[in-house]
């Protein structure tokens, strides 16, 4: 068995330690993404795009060509690059606010058009960079700065089911999965498959990663893991929702 280096080769060593808060999930997702890029050996062809929100802190994270865009707009920028230069491998990295709220029309439309790009979305159940407001993914009863008495689904809806929506409208050839930073081996596998799907030109690829924000959750280490494993996993099913060749099959949850 080959041991992974402490840092993926595709990471930029000179910009480490990274800019995320202690305990943030972004570093773990980007470690999985870096490993997937390493294993596929595609660093010469990748263009990595990041959004506004905490994801923007990754604008100099990788040894990869990178574009940091506006809130929710990484999807169309990557679409533009891919349409203009189909040989490039375009990764759009964003948070749940960017992908499911302000940029949801871009997500829906790029799925609908089956854009050959890979969207990776970190779900930490709230807007982190702006100080912890409610997001489409906020859990029922969860306290945020704009739901100080807890999210009332009657008033503001239930947690947004991203991969479920994407797989419902995606066509054959798409790859859709939800992983979690609590299972990094699985998450790396999903990200790798999502990139392979783009390389093979099958269709749109989407991976949501359940992430953590101890700063805004106001949780210590064990509470953070417990929130992910007990609370988030209760609302967000991990697994592959759509794989090329699976047709319109049912959700295949892991375990």
């Amino acid at each position: 068995m080959q041991l992974q280096p402490a840092m993926p080769r595709s990471w930029r060593v000179d910009t480490k330690p990274h800019k995320f808060c202690p305990g943030c999930g972004h570093g773990l997702i980007l470690k999985c993404l870096g490993q997937a890029v390493d294993e596929l050996g595609i660093e010469d062809r990748v263009v990595y795009g990041c959004d506004i929100g905490c994801s923007l802190l990754s604008w100099d994270f990788f040894n990869l060509d990178t574009v940091q865009t506006h809130h929710g707009r990484t999807t169309p920028v990557m679409t533009g690059i891919k349409r203009a230069r189909p040989e490039l491998i375009c990764i759009a990295y964003m948070g749940d606010g960017g992908g499911y709220s302000i940029g949801v029309q871009h997500l829906v439309s790029s799925v609908h058009r089956n854009e050959k790009i890979t969207v990776v979305l970190a779900n930490n159940t709230q807007y982190a960079m702006t100080g912890g407001q409610m997001a489409p993914t906020t859990l029922p009863g969860q306290k945020t700065e704009t739901t100080p008495y807890g999210r009332d689904p009657e008033v503001t809806g239930f947690p947004f089911q991203g991969p479920e929506m994407v797989s419902a409208i995606a066509r054959e050839g798409a790859y859709v999965a939800r992983g979690s930073i609590s299972n990094m081996r699985q998450l790396t596998g999903y990200l790798k498959k999502a990139l392979v799907n783009q390389i093979e030109g099958n269709g749109f690829s989407f991976v949501e990663a359940l992430s953590a924000c101890p700063t805004n959750w106001r949780t210590n280490a064990s509470e953070t893991w417990s929130f992910i494993d007990k609370e988030m996993h209760g609302h967000f099913k991990t697994g592959e929702f759509k794989t090329p060749g699976s047709g319109q099959g049912e959700v295949r949850a892991d375990e």
């Binding site: 533009g80 203009a84 439309s109």
Partner: peptide, 24 residues
């Protein structure tokens, strides 16, 4: 040459930004 009809002008403008960044 190519064309893409986007979902709105935000997307058209940002995709054009991506297009020029890729050197087209």
């Amino acid at each position: 040459k190519s064309f893409l009809q986007t979902e709105d002008e935000l997307s058209a403008g940002f995709a054009a930004a991506g297009g020029v960044m890729s050197g087209r």
